[in-house]
Design a protein around this nucleic acid. Structure first.
Lengths: 341, 341
DNA sequence: TGTGTTGTCGTAAACGTTTACGGAAAAACG
DNA sequence: CGTTTTTCCGTAAACGTTTACGACAACACA
């Protein structure tokens, strides 16, 4: 059905070698014949067979993204990833690469699946998300010498791989600064449990800013929970019932904020009036919630594109001729002030 | 690096043909040699090269899923798809298939991308979501003779492909029944614009139930908007300002409901108190919103698994020996009663 | 013993590319 | 005109599998 390079060669009465060279833009082919080959390719609706090409060239022309459902909540996932994936895939497609998505089984933290991808060599590289502070996936990949990039930082693996992250530390500090400027001194922080790295970064920024303002850090105002609605709902009361009730809460996540606000509502506390609320990673939910939640907005799609570029530049087979590889970028989080603080 | 079938053969001092046959479980190989081959494979950490296998067998061992960001809203996407994808991928992986995700460019409704996937034969089959009433993608695929399955029904393409859908018609009717039983007569409906098929199905159920109760359908109580928060926010006031204000609203979607509730809040109307609210497709958002929204919950992950099964059964290369192909399934939507109605 | 059957395995072709190599013709140069 | 260089193209091998085909030995049966 699909026409092969042999069909083209037969049709034009030339050898398959010449056809291949013409198609691949090699120098040693006559301009005229190249023209004819390209026309015939269009006419016969030719497109190269990926398996043949992959086999010969030894690369699969695809990148694997390890996607995970919410830990602690199989029912729904992270809308966060969709726009990121859009950017990632768009940029990869420009270079003729496909995006393979591998879902992590809840529980095993992807090690098993990752191993399978690497060993069967189904992808040329891997993109990891939700990096942990110490991430065994990163250790495994560096040890195996398999190319990868990460959305999010980690302390594992040194600085040998491209990574792109948001500046959670600054966002945490900015949130505190803003709240302090508005008169708050008792500020709580809700972040994800597990050792998701951005939870640490956020908390570091929060702590440092508090100290800078001469406010001592009260462990009773910090709580960890699952990074979803249930987690926020479950954990927020713990902080609200502290002896000296906080006047402001910073949530690491919109889903946790939603759960937290639910808990408040049940306790008769009105977010935005009785207590200030700020969310670190803004989503449309924040904008349309009542009260509209102040948050920090990431630019997800450009981040996807950028990480794809960084990854591509680190792969010998796809690297252009440009200079030094950019291995590490941290993007700002833009504050969107609304009604909740 | 990765060991090939030749390495195994050399190591065992037998031919590659025998190795391949042993690995693939053919009958014409001595039980003893098969044992030795399997052991050597484990020892040398062998796994077959996908490109070589694909080239020879003529199938790619991967399925493409066409994923789309929200139309009219590039910033975020549909969390709905993540659990579905989890199930889909899990079942495909069982049969050794990969899941390739192709993001639609906003605007072109995927035709271009789809064509590329089909023509380069990068996948053995395609899974479509967000089916439209008349879907050009389905027309294209049937005409091209390319295998596919859909999440959602369509009027295109007859009944020649596996499809799995939710019973939006019944959910629409159930919602009306429930509201009428609680005394409502003026019931509004907010559904997505575009010709997304589930919007039609929902509205059909809604209309029929209304008539069944002897209530005439008021076009002023029906509105279409983008299927996201902004759409709900924009379109809900139109219905609220009808001459005879509705006492209940059914939203087709949690995001639209969120936007709608925002609009209500700004108009001083309290959902759950001044007006009843029901959402057709329930998410965690519905549960943790205040008031908690009554909604209909789908079982997304099992649906993903099931659609994968149906698709597999329709592919000659992967079909088992079981009976007739199941081409069409409609799953129920379970009502979760909460506080908003 | 001759013939047919069965079990096991090696050989080699094929899938669709890419590319190293060499050769023929044309062009350039003395 | 002879030699060298350049331009262009064909040949064939290679990537790692799967599988049709045939070969050979062992065995059964007459």
């Amino acid at each position: 059905m699909a026409s092969s390079i042999h069909d083209l060669a037969r049709h034009l009465n030339i050898s398959i070698g010449t056809v291949s060279r013409a198609l691949n833009g090699r120098a040693d082919v006559n301009a005229d014949t190249r023209q004819r080959v390209l026309e015939a390719a269009k006419k016969l609706n030719y497109s190269p067979n990926q398996s043949g090409r992959s086999l010969r060239r030894g690369s699969t022309y695809s990148i694997a993204f390890m996607l995970q459902p919410h830990p602690g909540d199989q029912q729904y996932g992270e809308p966060f990833f969709i726009p990121f994936l859009t950017g990632l895939q768009a940029r990869l497609a420009e270079s003729g690469l496909d995006l393979i998505v591998v879902m992590g089984a809840p529980g095993d933290y992807q090690q098993e699946r990752l191993r399978r991808v690497v060993e069967t060599r189904r992808a040329d590289a891997v993109v990891l998300a939700w990096t942990r502070r110490e991430d065994e996936r990163i250790d495994y990949l560096t040890e195996a010498g398999f190319p990868f990039a990460t959305l999010g930082r980690s302390r594992s693996g040194g600085t040998t791989y491209p990574s792109l992250d948001l500046d959670f530390e600054k966002a945490g500090a900015d949130a505190v600064d803003r709240l302090v400027a508005r008169g708050h001194r008792r500020i709580a922080a809700i972040r994800p449990s597990l050792d998701l790295n951005f939870g640490y970064l956020f908390l570091d920024g929060y702590r440092k800013a508090l100290r800078r303002h001469g406010i001592e850090v009260d462990p009773g105002l910090i709580a960890d929970g699952f990074i979803n609605e249930a987690g926020g709902y479950q954990v927020t009361p713990r902080v609200l019932l502290a002896k000296d009730r906080p006047t402001a809460i910073i949530f690491n996540n919109d889903a946790m904020a939603l759960g937290g606000c639910k808990a408040m509502a049940e306790m008769g506390i009105r977010p935005g009036q009785d207590i200030a609320v700020i969310v670190i990673v803004d989503t449309p939910l924040c904008r349309y919630f009542s009260p509209a939640l102040t948050g920090f907005r990431p630019s997800l799609e450009p981040m996807g594109q950028r990480l794809a570029e960084m990854l591509l530049a680190s792969l010998p087979a796809f690297a252009g001729e440009e200079g030094p590889r950019i291995m590490r970028e941290v993007w700002p989080l833009e504050l969107i002030a609304r009604e909740s603080d």
